[in-house]
């Protein structure tokens, strides 16, 4: 079912990008979360209340956000963190599959005594390990900065754990989408373009869905909507997200497996 050899090698081949993106996410958390006190002092709540609702809800910047560190972290910091992390998740998953076609290592890897299903599932497992690492580090970083620096009494580690779990599930779903389309793309550059495009599309769909009632349906196409980071960071369990996001991930992997098994590796 899995090849440990592939799992370890994939982690090794991708460790540099994992460390870079983890560092980027950590810096985003550090900069934004540490700005909470400063924003509180600026009376941003009053300022935000003066903006039209369509603007604040679209960008996920409601007035309640600047009065509660947990909602601020989940609804704003992690929203943008999720944008970055989901783009990385799709780039990572897509490149794991399309790199062999792009680089020319298909003839090395796909002539080993393994089925294509085993090869893909092993790559999926290494993707899972790397996403887990990314979000565990993000959570630990958030916990340290939030609990020991920004708001020692208010930063709710339990609610933030839930929010980070939803972030992880959203990234897995994004990765699932990438695993589904990657067998159709023979160039890493192609999967990178898809990752960036879809990452922003998910973000924008959620914003537009929240802004305009007639277009409310588009937010259901967004992983950000199902992750519901604002709700999760205030302790509400996003039941829909807990079901939909893992299903998207599993469906994506299943579609990717079928397509990879049917793929002709030409030049």
């Amino acid at each position: 079912m899995f090849s440990l050899n592939i799992i370890f090698t994939e982690v090794r081949l991708n460790k540099r990008s994992l460390l870079i993106w983890t560092a980027v996410l950590a810096i985003v958390i550090l900069v934004y979360l540490s700005s909470f006190t400063f924003m509180e002092e600026m009376n941003l709540v009053e300022m935000i209340e003066g903006y039209p609702d369509i603007f604040t809800t679209g960008l996920g910047m409601g007035p309640e956000m600047f009065g509660d560190v947990n909602v601020y972290h989940g609804g704003l910091v992690m929203l943008y963190g999720l944008l970055l992390a989901s783009i990385y998740a799709m780039m990572l998953a897509g490149s794991m599959v399309s790199r062999d076609s792009d680089l020319g290592t298909v003839e090395f890897l796909y002539t080993r005594p393994l089925t294509r299903t085993t090869i893909l599932l092993s790559k999926v497992l290494s993707f899972l390990i790397m996403m887990l690492f990314l979000w565990v580090v993000a959570y630990l970083f958030s916990a340290i900065i939030g609990r020991f620096w920004v708001a020692p009494d208010e930063f709710d580690l339990g609610a933030q754990l839930l929010a980070h779990l939803m972030g992880l599930l959203a990234c897995l779903a994004a990765g699932g989408v990438a695993f589904a389309v990657a067998p159709l793309i023979n160039r890493v550059q192609g999967t990178t373009s898809v990752a960036i495009g879809l990452g922003f599309a998910f973000f924008i769909f959620n914003s537009i869905g929240n802004m305009y009632d007639p277009l409310r349906f588009v937010k259901y196409l967004s992983i950000s909507h199902y992750a519901d980071l604002t709700g999760a960071s205030s302790g509400q369990v996003p039941a829909a997200g807990l079901i939909v996001l893992p299903l998207v991930f599993l469906a994506g992997v299943a579609i990717g497996t079928v397509l990879l098994n049917r793929k002709d590796f030409t030049d």
Binding site: L13, G104, T111
Partner: peptide
């Protein structure tokens, strides 16, 4: 020949004409 790969490949060694490997 299994389209999706398999254990049969343990009996085979393959040298393609153009060779590329992981640069890392």
């Amino acid at each position: 020949v299994p389209a999706g790969g398999g254990k049969l490949y343990a009996k085979i060694g393959y040298v393609p004409s153009e060779v590329t490997y992981y640069p890392e």
